[in-house]
Each structure stands twice: as structure tokens, then as C-alpha cells.
Amino acid sequence: QVALSRTQVCGILREELFQGDAFHQSDTHIFIIMGASGDLAKKKIYPTIWWLFRDGLLPENTFIVGYARSRLTVADIRKQSEPFFKATPEEKLKLEDFFARNSYVAGQYDDAASYQRLNSHMNALHLGSQANRLFYLALPPTVYEAVTKNIHESCMSQIGWNRIIVEKPFGRDLQSSDRLSNHISSLFREDQIYRIDHYLGKEMVQNLMVLRFANRIFGPIWNRDNIACVILTFKEPFGTEGRGGYFDEFGIIRDVMQNHLLQMLCLVAMEKPASTNSDDVRDEKVKVLKCISEVQANNVVLGQYVGNPDGEGEATKGYLDDPTVPRGSTTATFAAVVLYVENERWDGVPFILRCGKALNERKAEVRLQFHDVAGDIFHQQCKRNELVIRVQPNEAVYTKMMTKKPGMFFNPEESELDLTYGNRYKNVKLPDAYERLILDVFCGSQMHFVRSDELREAWRIFTPLLHQIELEKPKPIPYIYGSRGPTEADELMKRVGFQYEGTYKWVNPHKL
């Protein structure tokens, strides 16, 4: 086992960053958080920038500027975001240094004079007029057009580079997404736009490419001749908990499936790229999406959770019991969808996408189930092999396979070949997804960000279904809070070829 401390991990990262040409360590950078008073800024962006600063992973002359409508001070920003920093008493001095680099400007999102004030403020910072500028839009999409237009007109660096990070949702359907994309691309070049999907920053999602293309053993079996089906799962054990009003506007397909799960599907299904260059990788992902037809209604199961009468606390409440959810809402909190990649490698292999709230566990994984062994000599005792990439929690890679049961006879039983990170790298604290992705933006690497043509294809696949749901308002199937979801989803999976045995229990190697 390799035991690495946080300091050692960050030392390795620093070495990698400083050796590259793309990370300008000594240049002045300004990180501007648009929507600095909001939840995302408070819980994710400010803490992430602090962790990067604490670990010495930001360029040395980096300033952080918050911008929002609320009249706040840096002290206010500190008060609301610091509880999420997880700072230790030993880091007190470092924390003071961090907040000394912070400033805040209040202004409207659609007022040109406010942006001119913001620009004057940035120019007044040390070497601010020639600094590289990175704008993070932690804002609702309704203000994107006004904000990007004003940034472009008043706040661009004339000497350094300018980059803009856009948070999902990128529209509600193909038409609104196209409108937003066309607007942003009329102001910024594609190499300046970073559409963030934080799932692409997760260690195991990034590991998929290495697993596939750096190991000879997987190449020959990664196709329709050997793989019976692919299941991509995202499960949350909690409901909307008072935030249903926002969720109800989008629903589970827009929230998770059309982005996170579809991105994971691309990494499983794509061909080997010409290189690890950002556009070479994204070219292959677009090719996969172009091979997927629009979702067919007979390959869809929609569910909505109801309270568990035997549960406790939140578990007793259904989705419609959330006071922020519109009365009688038919918005799905669970969806199972089957897609097919219609190309030579994957023809006929079902890709089953499942996601839901208020389920029995927290889990995100990719599961490849292989065909049955031909010419069975073990009297149907063999179960199908599976390769599982567990994204969260407890990152893991393992192969479910058959071995001989101890004893006199040739009785096979299920076991696993474990390729888990935790076994080799004991207690290594890896940077989280937002840390990686923000560092990628500083480096100018777009590999783990969504390109406009990729986004367009993703919406093309799901828009007809979303429009049909909005028009017909089908009643989702009720499922109990804390269950596996509607049984109809299991029946759909069985119908397209997935075999669920229920006889195997994964042993978490992190707890051995």
C-alpha cells in the first residue's frame, strides 16, 4: 500500500502544474464570482478556492472578487462561507491571508454602469489591468444573457486571457439551449467557454479513460460480442427537503440524466481518441451522441416518491408533501431510460440510465454486464461477469466473477477481482471535483468540460421526450421513500436483457 498525506498529494500536483506551459504561476489572475451571495458560491466555490489557495495550487498573485446585487462586505462573505471551509486552528494565518486577497463589488446584473465599476475595481488591483480574468457564473440561467453581454462589453482583460465558467442547466430543451449557446458564442470563442459538469471532475469518471485505453485486457472485450448491457446509475437517499420548488422546474431527467449520466455513457462508449488533447476527446464523445436516436417512450419509466409510513423524519414525507412543490405536480423524481448506440461496436446493446431521489442508498456507478459463458459445464450455477466502476461513495473498480467454492467439488461461487483505489492508495485525500475543474480552467484544459456541439446532441436525444411529458403530463409511478424505485423499472431492465441475480454482496474494501 502507498500512504500519501494531503501535503504529498498537493506537492505532486504542484510539480505537475508548474512543469506545464499552460499554468502561468507568476502571472496575476483575477477570479470573479458572479452571484457571490448565492448558495453555490457559499457552499462550493469559495470553499474550493480556499482549498486550492491553502494547498498552494493557485497562481501566487490571485485575487478573488465577488459580485452580486446584495450590498455585502468581505466580512459578510466570510461569515456565510467559512463554515464550509473546514479550516483547522493551525490554518488561521493562512485564512487571514486568503481573505486579504478577497474583495466585493455590489451591482445589478443588467446595468452597464455596475460592470464599469467592477472593471475599475479590477484595474485598481495590483497589475489588475493586465491580469488573466476568470469569470464564474454562479447564477440562474435567466440572467446569463445580460451578464455575459455586460462582461464582454465592460470587463474583459485587454492583455491577459479571459475565460468564463457556465453552470448547468444549459437551457431547458434543445431550442433554449441553442439560443443560449448562440448568444454566448457570439461574445466569446469556444476556447474561452467552460460549461461545467462537476461529474466530469470526479476521480473515477476520469479513471474510465485510463482503464479503457491503457489496459490491453479490456480492449478486445469492450464491444457487443461480449457486453450484454451497460447500466449507469445515480441514486440519492434523500428527497427534495424543502427545495422542491427549484427541482420541480427541471425534474430528474434535466437535473441528472441528460448531463451526468449521458457524459458517463460517452466515456464508456467512445472510441479511442487520437490523443488526450481536449478536442480529440470531445470529438469522440460527440460521435457517440450522434449514434444515439431520440428516446422512445416505451423505453422510459418515470416515478415519484411517496412517504414511507414506517419511516422516520423526512422519510415519512412524499414529494408532494414538500411545501415548495406545486400542488398535484407530476414532475418525476425517478427515471429509467434505455438508449442504444447504433454503431458497429455497440449495435443492440442497451445502455440503461437510472437516477432518482429518496432511494435506498447513495450511489453513482457504471456497471457493464457481460454475456453468459458459452457451453456451460457447471449446471447453470454460473452468474454473469460484471465490471463495476463505483464513482461514489467509496470509489472502487471491481470485476464480479466466478471462482471455485472451497471444498471437494467443482462448485462455482461469485467473488470479485478488486482493482480499488483504496487498497493501493491508503487514506489518500484526493482533490474534489470542483478543485480539479477550476484548476483545469486556470490551465486552459477543456477536456472535462462540455463543448457546444456535445451539448446540442445531448438535448436532441431528450427534448422530444421532455416535450411529450410536458404536454401529456403522465402521472409518475409512486414508489416508497427509501425503496429501490418503481418495480416497473426493474421490469424494463429485465425486458431489454439485464439479469439481476441478487445473490452477490459487494464487500467494501475500504472497511476491511
Rank of each mutant, 00 (worst) to 15 (best):
P393A: 08
Y398S: 03
D490N: 13
G497F: 06
E361M: 06
A358M: 04
A335T: 08
L265G: 04
A358H: 02
P393Q: 07
I477R: 13
P273K: 04
E470P: 05
N259P: 01
A364R: 02
P431M: 06
V341C: 11
V441A: 14
T503R: 10
R424Q: 05
L465C: 09
T399R: 02
V256M: 08
Q304V: 06
A274Y: 11
D322K: 00
V288H: 00
K290Y: 07
E386F: 01
T420W: 05
R354L: 00
N427K: 08
K290D: 09
T324L: 10
K290I: 01
A315Q: 13
D321K: 07
Q446R: 02
D453V: 01
I389K: 02
S445E: 12
K505F: 13
P486F: 03
N385L: 03
S293F: 06
Q258E: 08
V268D: 01
E491C: 10
M447Q: 03
V349Q: 04
S293P: 12
K404L: 05
L261G: 06
V397Q: 00
V338R: 09
M447N: 02
N259A: 02
T330F: 11
C355S: 08
V256A: 07
I438M: 10
G485W: 02
S275T: 12
A374W: 07
E284G: 10
Q381C: 08
Q381I: 10
R390Y: 05
E470V: 08
E413I: 13
W346G: 01
I377V: 11
C355M: 05
P393V: 02
E454V: 06
F409M: 13
M264K: 04
A269H: 03
E344H: 07
K357W: 04
I477E: 14
V373T: 11
V388I: 11
A336H: 08
F410I: 14
V338K: 13
P326G: 06
T331W: 03
T276R: 10
A358C: 07
T503L: 14
G407Q: 08
I253D: 05
T503D: 14
M402T: 12
Q381W: 07
V391R: 03
L339W: 03
Y340T: 13
Y504K: 06
S329T: 12
A269E: 03
V301C: 10
L430R: 13
W459I: 00
A335Q: 03
M257K: 05
G375T: 14
K400L: 03
W346V: 02
P350D: 00
D376L: 07
P326T: 07
V366Y: 03
S452N: 14
V428T: 08
L417M: 15
G356T: 00
R384M: 04
E314S: 13
G313P: 09
D322E: 09
L437C: 09
F449V: 03
F378C: 07
P350N: 00
H448I: 01
R254P: 05
L261W: 04
E314L: 08
E342F: 11
P431I: 07
V450M: 05
I377R: 07
T316W: 09
Y481H: 10
T399I: 10
E314Q: 10
L387W: 04
Q304C: 06
L359W: 04
N423I: 11
F334C: 06
R436K: 13
L261V: 11
L339Q: 06
L471C: 15
D280N: 09
S275L: 05
A489P: 02
R451C: 01
L419R: 05
R424Y: 06
P350K: 05
D283V: 00
D440P: 01
A297T: 15
V428P: 11
R424W: 00
G303K: 01
T316Q: 15
K317N: 14
Y421M: 09
L359T: 12
L302S: 08
K426Q: 11
I352D: 02
N299P: 07
P464S: 11
S452G: 14
L353C: 06
G482P: 03
Y481S: 08
Y500V: 06
D376C: 07
K426T: 12
T403P: 04
I352F: 07
V300I: 11
E271G: 07
P476V: 09
T420E: 13
P464V: 09
R495Y: 13
P309S: 11
S329L: 02
R456W: 07
T503N: 15
A358K: 00
K505R: 09
G307A: 14
P478M: 08
P273S: 04
S278N: 14
H448S: 12
D418V: 00
P431G: 11
S293K: 15
M402S: 09
V349S: 03
A274F: 10
A315S: 14
W506M: 05
S293Y: 11
T333I: 03
P478F: 08
D372Y: 06
Q499D: 11
K290P: 05
E344P: 10
G313W: 09
E454K: 00
C382T: 14
A396Q: 00
K405I: 13
G375W: 08
Y500P: 01
G485P: 00
K317T: 15
F378D: 04
T331I: 06
G407I: 02
L430C: 09
M493W: 08
V301F: 04
K429S: 14
D347Q: 13
V295N: 08
A358V: 00
D279R: 13
Q468H: 14
V306K: 15
Y434H: 08
L455E: 05
M447F: 00
R484M: 00
V306H: 14
V373Q: 10
C291L: 14
Y305S: 03
E386G: 00
C291Y: 11
V366D: 04
V507Q: 15
M401W: 10
P309Y: 11
F334T: 04
E386P: 02
D372K: 06
F442D: 05
R327Y: 12
L302W: 07
K287M: 08
V397S: 02
N423A: 13
Q381N: 12
K272W: 05
I469S: 10
Q468I: 10
K272S: 07
K405V: 10
V428Y: 14
L492C: 07
T463K: 00
G482T: 04
K405L: 11
L320M: 11
W459L: 04
H448K: 13
L466N: 05
K494Q: 13
Q380F: 08
I253K: 00
P476L: 06
D279Y: 10
L417V: 01
D418K: 05
V337K: 08
E361W: 00
A458E: 11
L466K: 04
Y421D: 06
P486G: 04
R354E: 00
G356S: 04
V306R: 15
D255N: 00
E414Q: 14
E342H: 14
G328H: 14
